[in-house]
Each structure stands twice: as C-alpha cells, then as structure tokens.
Write a protein that binds this DNA or RNA. Structure first.
Lengths: 214, 214
DNA sequence: TGTAATGTTTACCAATCGGTCAAATTATCC
DNA sequence: GGATAATTTGACCGATTGGTAAACATTACA
C-alpha cells in the first residue's frame, strides 16, 4: 500500500528523482508561457508524457509544482549578482555582470519568463523572498556601487536604478523575444543578436557610468 | 426583439458606449494580471459589476474583449515613438522619449502589463502587428538614429538595441513594479521613484551615447 | 522467489469554464 | 402612453478544470 506522496518518504528513489525532473521540466515549459492560472495540469502531464494522476503522485497540487519550480529558479537566478565582486574593478565587474545576465537570458529564457510572469501577477507566491533575501542581496551590492562612486571610480548614480536597468535590458531579450525577433527581422534573429546586444549594452553602461577614463 | 449584438448595429447607443467602456476597463484589470488564458469571463463580469451574459451581449467572446483591448493599447503605446522627431536635436529627443515612456509606465501600468503578458506568451494575438506596423515604425526611427550617429551627433551604436534598451528600462517600472517596490523598500516606494528613475536613465543614455560633448 | 513498498492508470467527482437561450426588464421614439 | 427596439438576467449546456479512490503493475529487497 503506497502510504505517502513522494515528498513524505525519507529517501528518494531513483524513479522519484528522474520523474520529478521530467515533471518540472514540463511544468517550466507550460508555466513560463501561460502563467500559473493559465496553465493546466493536463497540459503539463501531456508535455511530461505521463498521466495526470501520476503527476499528482509526485506533486500533490498544481501549486506544489509551481512552488518547486519557483524555488529552484529564484536561487540560480541571483547567482550572477552574487558573483558581483566588490574587490574587482568596476569596469570588468559591470561588463561581466551584463554578459552573465545576457547569457542567462539566452540559455534559460523559460526561467526568465517564469519569473516575469510571477512579477506581472504581483508576485503572489514570492513576495516574501523579494522583500527578504533579494532585497538584502541588492542592498549589499548597491553599497559596493555607491562606494565606487564615492571613490570616483564611476560616475555618481543611483545604484538601485543601475541594477534595475541591467536587469531589465538583459532580461528583455528573453521575455520579449518575440518582439525582438519581429523587429529585427529574419536576417538578424539568429543567435548573433546576443553578441550585438552584449556589445551595445556594455558600451552603453561603461560610457554611461563614466568608466574608462583613459 | 433584440436583433444583434451591439457591434452589428449601425449607430452605437449611449448605453453601448458607456458599458463597453466599463467592460474594457474591467477586462484590462483582469487580463493585465492573469493573461488571456488565466482570466475568466466571470471574473471580468464581477469587476465590471454586471452579469456574464450581459458582458457577452457587448462582446461575443472572451477573445473579442481581449482583441478590442489589445488594439486600443497597441495604438497608444507607440505614440511616444511616433513623436520621436528626426529634426529635433538628439539630446532633447532622447531625453523626452525616455520621459514619455516613463510617464506611460507610471500612468498606464495595466496597459504595459497587458502588453508584456502578450509578449511572454509568444504574441499569439499580435504577431502580425509586430512584424508589420511596429517593425516599420522602428525601422524608420532606427534610420534617424543611424543618421545622427553618422553625422557624429551621437556615438556609433546599434539603433535597434538602443530602442530595445529604452523600452525595457522604462517598462520595467510598470511590469516589475512589485519587485522594484520590494527592493527599494517602503521609504523609496512613493511616486518619487519615477523621478529618480528618470534622472538616472536620462543620464545613463545621454552619457552612454556620448551626447552632450560640451 | 516472494512480498511489501512503490509506481501507474482507469474511472470518476464536484466545481468552474466559455457560451447560449428565452424570458423579463428597461429605454426610445412616435 | 403604447409599440418597438435595446438591454439584462436566471437557468442551463457540454467541456474542461483540479483533484481523488481504488485497482492494477512494477520495483526493490529479504
């Protein structure tokens, strides 16, 4: 008699690990496009290639699936910002932060859209994480940037809005991908557009922040 | 015997105009948060304060409501870009474009989120408009920017990515409003954040584009 | 190899979905 | 004020929703 849902067992079976992975992959496909309410369990089950009750054996509710996804994405999403180094020099730190964020938009567009969907809906599932861990991290890095400005290494500017502008410009290439492709046309819709974007954005921010006085 | 749905009649009644306005207002509330599939007619009806069949008397389907909304938003959304003047001087044109877009994010956040939702879902209802009218308009303005660069009035840069970066940075304050508020904290979440953003963004772009050589 | 735990599926449920219909109500105009 | 057109609603429909129950199949392990 199968007592528990997968989560309750102490050790996780090989099958559990595999299937949960398959499910989250499918859920990411669906949630990232249609948002929480617009997605259906049946749809996720179909993408995952298993029956709906089987899905619900691993994740008891639709919310549980979404929760598991969000938790995973939230963590990895902030890695580039965590890597932002106070001891590095401003130019290379900002350049590599932009590059890293742009790579994430290119390589993990579904994760970006999942997050964007959550924000658009008012962050009903993650508002605590925004006010807590996220704010703390941003506060910390904002202080670094402010110190750079004070030391004359970069122009004086609001560090929070600087971070917002890097977030938005880079994520734009994942979240608004359709629009970007439509506007650029077929000829510039290849992967090369990320290189173009990187070049443009690095120049914009480096010059915009008055770095590279040489 | 009421012959037709409202749309079929030649002249639109006073009641029709009023009610359609009320409905679209409610639909904007709902669609902008939950996207097309995540929104329900019942929910819109409740917000609009009328019965579901009554809604469907004015708009035959959920799609018709969404369509009417999208059409309206698409038009007004591009006004700032249309106002972008080739004969103006680069600095003031870019400054006022940023300001206008930022004002729209502040004054019409629901419209911005409706559009963002549509993009996230792959623009299933507006892809034609993106490839057609939108692309044409952007192409035209990109040519203006390119001419400025060629004339040495601004630094050489990819005009398309420049436009993308202005779109994304400004719309961010509408679409990711929850996140912005959470990170800034209560003390900076007032309307003043738009002034701060405007100051920061204008400086970023003006310096980033090498304008203001004086 | 047997058996207990784990994994899967079929059939199903109540609630909600988008939408219809006909009857009732209200506005318009002579 | 009455006829006619426009508006509104309650009752309802089949399809889909998130989720459950229990039988069935498979795996792991002694």
């Amino acid at each position: 008699m199968a007592i528990p849902r997968a989560a309750k067992t102490q050790r996780r079976t090989r099958i559990q690990e595999e299937k949960e992975e398959v499910i989250l992959e499918a859920a990411l496909d669906v949630f990232s496009v249609h948002g929480f309410r617009g997605s259906t369990i049946d749809q996720i089950a179909e993408v995952a290639g298993m029956s709906k009750p089987n899905l619900l054996y691993y994740f008891r509710t639709k919310e549980a699936m979404h929760r598991a996804l969000i938790d995973r994405v939230l963590f990895t999403w902030l890695e580039p910002l965590r890597a932002f180094d106070a001891n590095g020099n401003p130019e290379s730190e900002i350049r590599s932060y932009i590059r890293r964020k742009l790579e994430m938009a290119r390589d993990f567009p579904r994760e970006s859209r999942l997050f964007a969907n959550e924000m658009l809906q008012g962050a009903p599932h993650v508002e605590d994480e925004l006010r807590g861990p996220l704010k703390s991290l941003v506060d910390e890095k904002a202080e670094v940037i402010r110190a750079w400005a004070k030391a004359g290494k970069i122009a004086k500017c609001d560090p929070y809005h600087l971070i917002f502008s890097i977030w938005s410009t880079t994520q734009h290439y994942a979240d608004f991908d359709v629009q970007v492709r439509a506007v650029l046309g077929q000829e510039h819709s290849g992967e090369g557009r990320f290189e173009d974007a990187a070049r443009y954005l690095e120049k914009l921010f480096v010059d915009g922040l008055g770095i590279r006085q040489s």
